[in-house]
Computed example of a mutant assay.
Amino acid sequence: MALPAASVQLYSLAKEFTADPQGSLDRLAAIGLKNVEAFDFVRRPAEIRSALDASGLVSPTGHAPLLTDELWTPDGSIPTPAPEVVFEAAAAIGIQTVIDPFVAPERWLTEEGVADIAERLNSAAEKAATFGLNVGYHNHAQEFVASFGDHTAYERFVSLTDERVQLELDLFWALTGGQDVPALVSRLGDRLTAVHVKDGIVPASNPWAPGAEAFGSDSLDQRHAGTGEVPLAAALRAGSAIQYAVIEYDRAPGDVFADIEASLGFLREGGFVA
Rank of each mutant, 00 (worst) to 15 (best):
N122R: 05
S123R: 15
R164I: 07
A174V: 09
D190Y: 03
E119G: 13
W72P: 04
V135L: 03
E119L: 11
H63E: 00
W108I: 04
L121T: 05
S55Q: 10
L184V: 03
V114M: 13
L175D: 06
V185A: 02
S186R: 14
A128K: 05
Y249A: 00
D259S: 14
A19E: 15
N35V: 01
G271M: 13
S186W: 04
D250P: 05
H151V: 10
L236Q: 09
D218K: 11
E143P: 04
V86G: 02
D69K: 15
E47G: 01
E168I: 06
P231W: 03
D162R: 15
L232W: 08
E213C: 10
V103D: 00
G32F: 03
E143V: 11
I95M: 01
L171A: 10
S24R: 01
D53W: 02
T161C: 12
T80F: 02
R44N: 07
S186T: 11
D100S: 05
D259H: 00
D69I: 02
G265N: 11
S12M: 04
W208K: 04
S55R: 08
V256K: 09
V230F: 05
V202R: 11
T193E: 06
T73F: 14
V8P: 02
A183F: 07
L192W: 01
F39A: 08
T176L: 06
E269T: 15
Q222A: 06
T110H: 15
G178C: 14
A118K: 11
G23R: 10
A125N: 12
G113L: 10
R107H: 12
L33S: 02
G32Y: 03
E126S: 11
L33Q: 01
V135K: 01
T80Y: 03
A209T: 13
E16F: 03
I31K: 04
M1Q: 14
A252E: 08
E106H: 13
P21A: 04
Q243T: 07
E16T: 13
I201D: 11
E37G: 06
V42W: 01
Y154L: 01
T97H: 08
A146Q: 05
A19W: 09
P207A: 07
A141E: 04
T68H: 10
R223A: 04
L25M: 07
P253Y: 13
T130C: 07
F272V: 02
T110Q: 12
L236V: 05
S12P: 03
F215T: 15
D69W: 11
V202T: 15
K127I: 04
G271C: 12
I31N: 09
S159K: 12
H196K: 11
E111N: 06
P81T: 12
A252D: 02
E70K: 14
L28K: 06
R44C: 00
T80R: 06
S77D: 15
R251E: 07
G113R: 10
V145T: 12
G211W: 12
T68S: 14
E84S: 13
V246G: 00
S123N: 13
I242T: 00
P101H: 01
E155K: 09
T152R: 05
L33N: 04
D180N: 14
D150Q: 14
L71C: 08
G228Q: 13
P210S: 09
E143M: 10
A51V: 11
Q22M: 10
H151P: 04
A241P: 02
V42S: 04
A90H: 00
Q96D: 11
L66W: 14
R107A: 11
R120F: 08
D221N: 14
K127A: 13
F144G: 01
F257L: 07
G177N: 09
P21Y: 00
A118E: 01
